[in-house]
Design a protein around this nucleic acid. Structure first.
Length: 817
RNA sequence: GCCGAAGUGGUGGAAUGGCAGACACGCUCGCCUCAAAAGCGAGUGGAGGUGACUCCGUGUGGGUUCGAAUCCCACCUUCGGCACCA
């Protein structure tokens, strides 16, 4: 540790962030400054959560530093406001990203991850100056954590929400595993950008769709940015309509179809099944069988991305079979086409070409009849009419407005047992199994006698073994399927021979509950302690990036709701208050390794110190918007911190003046408090810069007490943003350790009372003069002053004042004509 | 195609109905220096004027208003999300 600085002495040293930061880091550590007493009831609690990183090759990214700078500044601000702040950190250490890094290095992820985590934490993260309480660190890849991830799986299983079923799933040919729907972005793998293919496979799913309505409705009660609510709403994609039953002609076999336009059922001139629809096999006529099977073959080879392409012309094949339109009894042909998806609705549609663009295009291509049943002006020969209107050619419903017809037609068909109201969602069940090594084994065994049996809770964890060959196999099975010591098991129920499930679970399951674990890391006999959980959750502030809205945030809400329903939690939303920071671009583009425009935070910390990087990141622009990183501006922030240091260091050569108006200081306190409350960090920092400029310019007029007061206030307000420099300045000003335990400064409202206000004088809305007057100056006096002003009077000469706009203490506008 | 956000000096941005450009970056000039760096000081939207000043100016066009960067309508551009969801 460097020499102690005695308060009061002028050192004439330059601002040396490296020395300052390492000295205070050691002092904070040794005094346990950031260890939170979770059982302290004397202050209101504040659970300050921020996204934890997954350790990978690249090291800590500047995006992480951005998240943490903003979240930590908020945590420190709340701490100074009197909250007992809990700010934990951990590692999302399981998962494909960490595993792919290990594969590239050829080192078992179990060995490599431990090293990577140490590097992240001890070489990078500790330097950032965040008030993390490392005594509650979690690492999702450790048995003491994933044991409870497996426990969570078992709760899902018991509740009937974890099911093993065959379904069309997304397979990534590069990662050699299946993916959840949320992990496919525009037909590509979220991790590696490879095009995914569709496969029918038996997999484990969590039935998140059963919670679709609650996930949708409860968004209302959350303090979240609108964009994240909108994205979740879109993703859940609730759609109201009806399920109508068409029957196969002759056999009478029902074909339920989902439609949002039951009012157009009289215009349904054909039915389309998804190519994978189970009915296709049974209804296809011998003449059509060859064509149908060829088409099914072709579609099954198609990549998701090709199938979704809109440019593509519609294709399809007639099955040879007919169905009966339940509204008018007409026979309509049954086709199969890939524009109908097996995974949405019932996998079958009634096609109404007159009033649906897609059906229209298909009907025109294959010469199917187009029957207009909603009155339209332009007709429907060229384009479908999809708007509302009056029903026609619809029997008893002719003349009914379409909106009313939706309900009426559904009720009419329902009375005949051929329909009912229905709701469909875009959201699909969460596919959680992965054919990979680096994750928690799914705690299920398969017994010859008892079938699928959950591992009893007291036998958890099912330990992930350290294996030689951890490479993904590509066979649709995890590498664990080749490890006999692992998969050979005895049935927990009958004791007979059994095999373990060898798939591991999705990384997003690990992170779906980690916020529940942080307060309870001391317990190894329960995932989360009821008492601590009741006290500390839900989370008071959660900070992260936009990329997790339909992944991590949605899954966490689902898991919380399930645990609530099972009686483990008394709340059903994990993150009451969520804020999303913007993306940092560099040279105008998103940072990426391939572009070679990645900012390495280590270099900036080494050169300028963590405080400068933190302060710069927050100063760039509005925290919740995207910002471009500019190297030159970083140096400017470093100079600002250096100026503050010099300001404090040279204070004994100044002050001792007759005293000055301290209103500026009180205004700054008010401004900074308000800006920090709203995450407007860039304007908070600007206000601190203005205050520093103000002190510099008037310090010789200040009394010594005033100067001291101003500098201390400045140090206090700097502390949440630049914690090292704030601490150092506070210490040099003789403040007691630590600045981070001080109360946030309050402004004196009386000191804000203005002795004079500036009135802006406009003529016809153009500013012509401004003058200082006492607050509360009446209108007539202001008007008189305006007429006397040589800068205003020329514009009034020879004209009549038609109107006077008077905003007390602010503005006078004279309208002349 | 649909939904959303945003367009302000050379640059990042401030101002959400009332003084456009706070605060910075950059640049110019000056001080310091043998010189440079650092630091400090002054200036810095555009055009005009010796000058006090004047006019213009927040993507484009229109509107509301005493007054619009801010509200409304149309369009253009950029970014983001979704995309055959019946």
């Amino acid at each position: 540790m460097a020499q102690r600085v005695e308060p009061g002495s002028r050192t004439d040293e330059r601002y040396d962030p490296k020395e300052i930061e390492s000295r205070w880091r050691a002092r904070w550590e040794e005094s346990g400054l950031y260890r939170t007493n979770l059982r302290d009831d004397s202050r209101p609690k504040y659970y300050n959560l921020m996204e934890f990183p997954y350790p990978s090759a690249e090291g800590l990214h500047v995006g992480h530093v951005y998240t943490y700078s903003g979240a930590d500044t908020n945590g420190r601000f709340r701490r100074m406001q009197g909250y007992n702040v809990f700010e934990p950190m951990g590692f999302d250490a399981f998962g494909i990203h960490s595993e792919n890094y290990a594969l590239k290095q050829g080192i078992n992820p179990m060995d490599l991850t431990a090293r990577t985590v140490r590097r992240y934490r001890d070489e990078q993260m500790v330097r950032l100056g965040c008030m993390w309480d490392w005594s509650h660190e979690v690492n999702t890849s450790q048995p003491d954590y994933y044991r409870w991830t497996q426990w969570l799986f078992l709760q899902m299983y018991r509740a009937g929400l974890a099911v093993r079923k065959s379904a069309p799933v997304n397979w990534c040919p590069s990662c050699l595993t299946v993916l959840a729907n949320e992990q496919v972005i525009n037909g590509r793998c979220e991790r590696c950008d490879t095009e995914v293919v569709q496969k029918e496979m038996v997999q484990w799913f969590f039935k998140i769709t059963e919670y679709a309505d609650r996930l949708l409705d409860d968004l209302e009660k959350l303090d979240w940015p609108e964009i994240s609510k909108r994205l979740q709403r879109n993703w859940i994609g609730r759609s109201e309509g009806a399920e109508l039953v068409f029957e196969v002609a002759d056999t009478g076999e029902p074909i339920p179809v989902f439609t949002t336009r039951p009012d157009t059922v009289f215009g349904a001139t054909y039915v389309v099944l998804a190519p994978e629809h189970p009915l296709v096999e049974r209804i296809t006529t011998p003449e059509q069988r060859e064509a149908v099977e060829a088409y099914q073959q072709k579609v099954s080879y198609e990549k998701e991305i090709e199938r979704l392409s809109l440019e593509k012309e519609k294709t399809g094949v007639f099955t040879g079979a007919y169905a009966v339109n339940p509204a008018n009894g007409e026979r309509v042909p049954i086709w199969i086409a890939d524009y109908v998806l097996m995974t949405y609705g019932t996998g079958a549609i009634m096609a109404v070409p007159a009033h649906d663009e897609r059906d229209h295009e298909f009907a025109r291509k294959f010469g199917l009849p187009i029957v207009e049943v909603i009155e339209s002006e332009g007709g429907v020969s060229e384009h479908a009419y999809t708007g509302p209107g009056t029903m026609k050619r619809s029997g008893r419903f002719d003349g009914t407005p379409s909106e009313e017809g939706k309900r009426a037609v559904t009720e009419w068909l329902e009375s005949r047992g051929l329909g009912k109201r229905a709701v469909t969602y875009r959201l699909r069940d969460w596919l959680i199994s992965r054919q990979r090594y680096w994750g928690p084994p799914i705690p299920i065994v398969y017994c010859e006698r008892d079938g699928e049996v959950p591992v009893p809770e007291d036998q958890l964890p099912v330990v992930l073994p350290h294996v030689e060959d951890f490479r993904p196999t590509g066979t649709g099975k995890s590498p664990l399927a080749t490890v006999e010591e692992f998969y050979k098991a005895t049935c927990p129920r009958c004791g007979g021979p059994a095999v373990r499930e060898t798939d591991v679970s999705d990384t997003f399951l690990d992170s779906s509950w980690y916020y529940l674990r942080y307060p309870s890391t001391e317990f190894d006999d329960r995932p989360f302690d009821p008492e601590l959980t009741r006290k500390w959750l839900p989370v008071d502030s959660y900070m992260g990036g936009k990329e997790h809205i339909v992944l991590h945030h949605l899954y966490s809400r689902f898991v919380t709701k399930v645990l609530h329903d099972l009686g483990y939690l008394d709340f059903d939303e994990p993150f009451q208050h969520l804020r999303l920071h913007g993306i940092i671009t560099y040279q105008g583009a998103k940072m990426s390794k391939s572009r070679g425009n990645v900012i390495n935070p280590d270099e900036y910390i080494a050169r300028y110190g963590a405080d400068t990087l933190r302060t710069y990141l927050l100063f760039m622009g509005p925290y919740e918007e995207d910002n471009d990183f500019q190297d030159t501006a970083v140096a400017g922030v470093s100079r600002f911190l250096g100026r503050l240091y010099a300001l404090v260091d040279s204070r004994h050569e100044h002050g001792g003046g007759p005293g000055t108006d301290m209103r500026q200081m009180h205004q700054t306190i008010g401004r900074v408090t308000h800006e920090l409350d709203n995450l407007r960090y860039h304007t908070a920092i600007a206000a601190l810069m203005e205050m520093s400029n103000w002190i510099t310019s008037v310090r010789d007029d200040m009394t010594s007490e005033q100067q001291e007061d101003a500098l201390r206030t400045l140090a206090l307000m700097l502390a949440p943003i630049a914690p090292f420099t704030g601490e150092e300045l506070w210490h040099r000003l003789g403040g007691e350790y630590s600045v981070h335990n001080q109360r946030w400064p309050e402004y004196d409202p009386a000191a804000l009372g203005k002795s004079a206000v500036t009135i802006v004088v406009q003529v016809n809305g153009k500013v012509r003069d401004r003058f200082e007057v006492r607050p509360g100056t009446p209108e007539d006096e202001a008007v008189r002053l305006a007429h006397e002003s040589p800068r205003v009077s020329p514009y009034l000469d020879g004209r009549t004042v038609r109107k006077i706009v008077w905003v007390p203490d602010r503005l006078l506008n004279l309208v002349v004509g």
